[in-house]
Simulated scan of single mutants.
Amino acid sequence: MMILLRMAVMLLPVLGVGSGLYAWQSHRKSAATAAMGTTPPPTRVAVAEAQLLAAPRRRAGVGTLEAVRRVTLAAEVNGRVTRIFFEPGQAVKAGDPVLQLNDAPERAELERLKAQAHAAELAYNRTRQLAPHAVPQAQLDDREAALRSVRADIARIEAVIAQKLVRAPFDGVLGVRRVDLGAYIEAGRVIATLTDLSVLYITFTLPEQAWSELKPGLVARFTVDSSPGRVFTGRVQTVEPQIGATNRAITVQAVADNPDLALAPGMFANVQLELPPGPQAIVVPETAIDFASYGATAFVVRAKAAGAGQAPVLVVKRVLVQAGERFEGKVVVLSGLAPGDRVVTSGQVKLHDDVAVEPVARDTLAVPQTH
C-alpha cells in the first residue's frame, strides 16, 4: 500500500505538466482556426474553355514502305567480267556504267563488218551510176541488198556490245555486289540491286467502312521507329478497287518524298490518313478528361451565388462526358459539355463536387523552365 502511495505522489507532477502542454496546444489550434476561418482557401487549378471547332477526322492504319523504282541489275548475255565500275552502296545516275563484260571478239567483228560495209557501199554507188543503161537493174538491187545486209550485221553486233556493258537505268543507290572481277557469268546472273530512294510508296490497309471516304490526293501522315518523334507526309495515289475477301480491308498506296534518305523500303509505318473535316464539334484539352473504368468525366467550373455584398464563388462539378476522337493534345466531346463551358485541365486530384477553385494563368502541371 505504501508503495502505491509513493508512486502516485511521484506521478502527480508528470500528469500536471502533460495536462498543461495539452491545454496550451489546444489553445494554439483554436486560435489558428479562429484566425483562418472555417472555410479552406480555394484550390488553384488551370482552366480551359470548351470550343466549337471543325475537328479533323482521321483513319489509322499500318503499312510498309516500298520503293517506287527498284530493279535487280543482271547480265543480258554470257561473258567474263573485265571491269566493275561501282562500290556497294554507291549512288549512281541514270546511264552510269556498272559492269563490263569482255567484248573484245565482238569489237573485232564490228571492225570487220565496217570494212565490208565500206566496200559494199562503194560497189553500190558505182553500180547506181551505171544503171540502168550499162548494168541491169537486177545487179543494182543485189548490191543494195548486200549493203543493207552488212549494215544489219553491224547493228546486231553493236547491240551485243551494248549488252555487255551494264548501265544504271535510273538514279539510285546500288546494293551488295554479287559478282567478282574476272568471273565468267551467264545471262541473268544478278549483279546488284538498284533502288531509287528519293520517292517511296506507303502501302497500308484500312477497314472497309472507310471506302466511301477514300480518294486520291488525301494527306497521309506516318511515323517510323527509326525516327522517333518525326512525322512524315505523303499523298494518296492509289486506292485498290477491290476489298480483300479474307480481311475485308482496303489497300491504299500513298507516295512520299524522301530528300534526306531518312526512310528506306521495308520499314514499318504507323499511318494517320487525314479525311476532310466533318461538322463542328465541342473540343477540350485532353488533360481535362479523366478516363476511368466507369466512364469519362470532367470538372466544370461554375459560379456559386454568395451572400449579400459578396462576390460569387467559383466551384467545380464533376460531369460525365462521352469522349470521341483525339488529335494534337485535344479530344472531341460528343456529350456532357456545352460550348463555352470552362473545364479544369490540371489539379483535378484535389477536387470533388462543390470545392471552391481559383483559376490560374498557366497550367499548374507544367514543368517550370530552368535557366
Rank of each mutant, 00 (worst) to 15 (best):
187 A>V: 09
128 R>Y: 07
189 R>E: 14
125 N>I: 07
131 A>P: 03
237 Q>V: 08
196 D>H: 05
174 L>F: 09
121 E>T: 13
131 A>G: 10
235 R>C: 00
217 G>S: 06
222 F>M: 02
164 K>P: 04
159 A>P: 07
192 A>H: 04
130 L>P: 04
115 A>W: 01
148 R>F: 10
237 Q>I: 01
126 R>I: 10
223 T>V: 09
152 A>T: 13
203 T>V: 15
147 L>E: 05
166 V>Y: 05
138 A>D: 12
188 G>E: 10
184 Y>K: 12
139 Q>I: 06
224 V>R: 07
174 L>R: 03
161 I>N: 07
178 R>T: 02
202 I>R: 01
166 V>F: 07
236 V>N: 04
146 A>C: 04
168 A>T: 01
203 T>M: 08
191 I>K: 00
225 D>H: 09
196 D>I: 01
195 T>L: 02
218 L>E: 12
207 P>V: 10
215 K>L: 07
193 T>P: 03
165 L>R: 13
212 S>K: 10
160 V>Q: 11
164 K>S: 05
157 I>N: 03
154 I>C: 09
236 V>D: 07
215 K>Q: 15
201 Y>P: 00
235 R>I: 04
136 P>F: 00
199 V>R: 11
213 E>W: 12
153 D>K: 08
130 L>M: 14
207 P>S: 08
119 A>D: 14
116 Q>S: 11
141 D>V: 08
167 R>T: 13
231 V>H: 10
216 P>V: 06
137 Q>A: 14
205 T>C: 00
123 A>G: 14
194 L>I: 02
117 A>E: 09
195 T>G: 05
224 V>F: 03
150 V>L: 02
177 R>P: 00
199 V>P: 00
187 A>F: 11
224 V>D: 01
158 E>V: 06
147 L>H: 07
160 V>T: 13
150 V>E: 08
196 D>F: 01
215 K>I: 01
210 A>H: 08
124 Y>H: 13
